[in-house]
Write a protein that binds this DNA or RNA. Structure first.
Lengths: 217, 217
DNA sequence: CATGGTCGTTGTTGTAAATCAATGTCGCCA
DNA sequence: TGGCGACATTGATTTACAACAACGACCATG
C-alpha cells in the first residue's frame, strides 16, 4: 500500500512533505476543470481519476486515467486545460502550484524527475494517438485492457488475470474514441470468443496470448 | 531567418554551441527510426520533418510535423520509439544525446526549458487525441490547416492566408487518422464551399471565420 | 516529346461503427 | 417489496469513411 504521499517518498522529495496536503474526494467530484486556472498539483493516493477534454457540443475525449501513484499537473501550465474528476472515491496529496514550482526550480533532481515523467507521458500520449487514429475497436479494447492490467500490476506489485475496471463503459468509450454501444458489443464479443470473461467491475483475461496478439496487431 | 542553430540562440544554450553539429538531409531521408536506439537529438533549422509510428502491418500514424525551430528528442528516452524522416530537404543541428544530457543535468535553466517544452508537447498531444478520437473529417482538416497556419506565422513572424503544405496528402491522412481519399475529397469539398482555394503545395484560406467555426466546433 | 513514376482526384462499392430504439439488470431508497 | 434511476446490453438501421478501382496531372529523365 502506498503511504501518505505516494510517489513522493523519494529522497528528492522529502523537502516537499511539509507542503503536503492530503484531500479526499467522493466519486464524481470535480478536482479541476478546463476553465478555471489550476492552483494545485496532485498525487493520487487511492482511487481513480479521469482526465478529459470537452468540445463545445459536449463530445468528450478522456486523455487518461490517473491511478494511485500518478502525478497530476504536468500539462497544466500551458493554458490548454483539461478537466479532472473522481471516478471512484479518491484520496490525493495536494500541493500549491506555486510552492511546488519554486521547490522544483531549486532542486534540479526534482526538475529532472518531472521532466522524465513528462517525456514518459508524452510517449504514452503518442501511443494513444496510434490507437485512436489507426486501430479498430477490438484492437483498442485489447490494448486498453492489457495496458490497465500492467498498470495495476505495477501498483500492487503482483500481476493478476482479473482486471479491475472501476470506470463505466461510457468512460472507456470516451477514452478509446468509440461509443458506449461499440464498447459493450466488442467486450461481449471478446467474451463469446473466450478471450475474456466479464465480471462485475472488471474482466478476467482467459487467453492472454491471443489478446496480446490483437493488441499489438 | 533562423541562424545556425535555431532555438538554441538563448543564453541558456551558448555552452552548447561548441557541441553543435549541423547536418543536411535530402527529402525522404531517414533521420532515425523506431528500432535503432537514438544517438542524437536535433533542432530543425529548415525544412519539415515527419515523426511517426508504424504498426507491424504497415499502418502509420504521424504523431507530428517538426518545423524550423522545433526540437526533436524529448520522448526518445523511453524506449518507445518513433521514426523521423525528411518531408522536404532538411537542415538540422545535431547533438550527441549523451553530451546533451550531461549539459542539461548541469544547467538547471536548460532542464527547466526542456521540461517546459515537454509539457507543451504534451498539451499538443492531448489536443491531437481529441481530434483523432472525437472529430469528423472536416473538423480534422480545418484544425490541421489553421494549426499549421499559426505555426508558420510564428516562424516567419508574419501571418498569411496562404498556408504552405509541404507534405503530401498521404502524410496529412496519416496525421489525421484518415485515408488519402478522404483528405482529397474533404479538401476539394471545402474548396467547392469557398472555404479555401487549393494551390500548388498549399491552400489559401478564403473564409477564416467559417473555417475556425468548423475547427473549434 | 514519348515514357514511366509519383501523386492527387473522382467514382463505386463495402463495411465498421454510429445512431436510434428498446429492453434488461442491479442497487438504492421510499 | 416494489419501483425508480443509472448503467449495460441487444437489435435494427443508417452513415461516414474505408477500400477498391480507374483515371488524370505533373515532372523528371532518356
Amino acid at each position: 500500500m502506498l503511504s501518505v504521499c505516494g510517489s513522493l517518498e523519494d529522497e528528492a522529495f522529502v523537502g516537499l512533505q511539509k507542503l503536503n496536503h492530503p484531500v479526499n474526494f467522493p466519486a464524481r467530484a470535480v478536482l479541476f476543470n478546463q476553465e478555471t486556472p489550476v492552483r494545485h498539483v496532485f498525487t493520487v493516493v487511492h482511487g481513480v481519476v479521469r482526465l478529459y477534454k470537452l468540445l463545445p457540443d459536449g463530445r468528450r475525449q478522456i486523455v487518461g486515467f490517473a491511478l494511485p501513484g500518478d502525478f497530476l499537473g504536468l500539462a497544466l501550465a500551458d493554458g490548454y486545460g483539461f478537466c479532472a474528476d473522481a471516478v471512484t472515491a479518491v484520496t490525493v496529496c495536494r500541493f500549491s502550484r506555486d510552492h511546488f514550482g519554486d521547490y522544483a526550480d531549486q532542486h534540479p533532481q526534482m526538475l529532472r524527475r518531472l521532466h522524465d515523467m513528462a517525456t514518459h507521458e508524452l510517449a504514452l500520449a503518442q501511443q494513444q494517438m496510434v490507437l485512436l487514429g489507426r486501430r479498430d475497436a477490438e484492437e483498442k479494447l485489447a490494448s486498453f485492457l492489457l495496458g490497465l492490467q500492467k498498470r495495476w500490476a505495477r501498483i500492487s506489485g503482483k500481476s493478476s488475470v482479473t482486471i479491475d475496471l472501476p470506470m463505466g463503459r461510457q468512460d472507456i468509450a470516451d477514452f478509446l474514441g468509440l461509443t458506449i454501444e461499440t464498447v459493450s458489443r466488442t467486450l461481449n464479443r471478446m467474451a463469446r470468443d473466450k478471450l475474456i470473461v466479464i465480471v462485475p467491475d472488471g474482466v478476467r483475461v482467459m487467453d492472454a496470448a491471443r489478446l496480446e496478439a490483437i493488441a499489438s496487431a
